[in-house]
Design a binder for these strands. Structure first.
Length: 421
DNA sequence: CATCCACAGGAAGGACGGGGGT
DNA sequence: ACCCCCGTCCTTCCTGTGGATG
């Protein structure tokens, strides 16, 4: 009786949870706002679609489209436009009986030549073990597979600057010249490189630069008005009527516009705001929900980043927080001194300053700190480091590491003596 | 105007664990 | 079972540099 009663209670609680979601009058289709969703219409990107479309259209005739280089800050629709155009291209090619395939590789996630090649290989139906072979072997197998096919392969290297920064442009060079290793009737390879780093081109070898940049497309950031258009377009499908109003959309657009017009941010904000509203059982999404969404997104990002950091990077981060607490900013040297003390407190060997210098760069690229090089003349050249996220959020995330739990807790309470010890 | 600080950041390589090929 | 290759994290050694100071 008691057990049955308990079971009843549990299912009752669950029913409540389920009802909240299924009975929700918030989302009609939440997926419309997911980061991977490619809508049927991409407002304010008509020119870019037309230009990219006219370039890759060559594939429909069986010829190799020019390589394309696409620049634009994050969330300016580079990936969405590229995938949108390529999907339509492949569909049209199928109708025409032409063999056109594309391989999409995000080289930030797949950041080694090996993994990139493996992904390209799998796009042409070649299975490659995820490790074990030499890179040269994978390349050779890819060449063989391409020789056996015809048509056109379009390789999309998203965030290609990551690959080049970490691994150099060897792979890019090889890929741009892969055609010379293939027989005339083999599959033709064309490359679309996407980057949000404007200075990236400078890192490239002149030969790679000229062959990859046969065509160039620049994606300008969206302004607040354009972001509103984008949000409305999606919101109409994603939410039930009357759930969001112009104030909510405008607020999301404004917050994202502050971050250089990042549409992805704007859509994330709107989605999470909707989720929060739904969980609360609210009938409408409010500006307050958007505010909460902003905080949650930052929190999630910090936790995710921190969870991937090795011990010494965590210690460096702690050192930065400690120093920044004192003066707002810190230099590399100061951070290293603080780091050394923290390492001792934890009882681990310290790494060299050279290594910490790299760690600082990594933290900067992860967007968790801000580090810019300055010259203070007589007083040398260094990096001025500041936090770009909330310190307490970072400390909270670091507390989950048993080795750092105590230190993080101490710092959170503003423990300044820590570094004297 | 040369100097010199306090680093930046490139190059080479090594230890180590993990996971294939044969 | 053994060999190889890879990625990660780290070291050592190094050359380069913007601009306040003497």
């Amino acid at each position: 009786m008691l057990v049955a009663g308990k079971a009843f209670l549990v299912s009752d609680v669950l029913d409540e949870v389920f009802d909240k979601v299924t009975g929700s009058r918030i989302f009609r289709n939440r997926d419309i706002l997911s980061p991977d969703y490619i809508p049927d219409r991409l407002p304010h990107r008509e020119n870019e679609i037309r230009r990219l479309g006219s370039i890759v259209a060559q594939a429909l005739k069986g010829s190799r489209p020019n390589n394309v280089f696409i620049y634009g800050l994050t969330g300016t629709g580079k990936t969405a436009v590229t995938l949108y155009v390529l999907r339509r291209l492949v569909a049209r090619a199928r109708d025409l009986g032409v063999d056109v395939v594309y391989a999409y590789v995000n080289t930030r996630q797949r950041d080694t030549p090996y993994r990139v090649l493996a992904d390209i290989a799998s796009a042409v139906g070649l299975r490659v073990p995820f490790t074990g072979l030499s890179t040269a072997e994978v390349y050779a197998r890819l060449v063989r597979a391409l020789s056996r096919r015809s048509g056109v392969l379009i390789v999309v290297l998203d965030e290609v600057d990551w690959l080049v920064r970490r691994r150099g442009d060897d792979l890019l060079y090889k890929l741009t010249r892969i055609g010379y290793e293939l027989p005339r009737n083999a599959m033709k390879v064309s490359i679309i490189g996407i980057t949000n780093d404007v200075k990236f081109v400078e890192m490239l070898d002149a030969r790679v630069r000229s062959s990859l940049g046969e065509e160039e497309l620049v994606f300008p950031p969206y302004n607040a008005q354009q972001l509103r258009d984008i949000l409305w377009e999606r919101a109409v499908e994603a939410f039930y009527p009357g759930v969001v109003d112009d104030a909510v959309i405008s607020y999301c657009a404004a917050l994202a516009a502050r971050e250089h017009g990042d549409a992805r941010r704007a859509l994330d904000l709107l989605r999470v705001a909707g989720e929060i509203a739904e969980r609360e059982g609210a009938e409408r999404v409010t500006v307050e929900h958007v505010r909460a969404a902003w905080a949650q997104l930052e929190r999630d990002r910090v936790y995710e980043v921190v969870s991937t950091l090795p011990l010494h990077a965590r210690l460096t981060l702690l050192a930065i927080i400690a120093k920044v607490r004192e003066r707002g900013v810190a230099t590399t040297g100061e951070v290293y001194d603080a780091y050394a003390k923290l390492a001792e407190a934890v009882g681990v060997e310290r790494v060299t300053q050279r290594r910490v210098s790299d760690i600082i760069n990594e933290l900067d690229m992860l967007g968790i700190i801000n580090a810019r090089v300055v010259s203070r003349g007589r007083y040398g050249k260094t990096r001025i480091i500041s936090l770009s996220v909330d310190a307490d959020t970072v400390l909270e995330a670091l507390r989950s590491d048993p080795r750092l739990e105590e230190l993080a807790a101490l710092l959170r309470r503003g423990g300044r003596r820590l570094l004297q010890a």
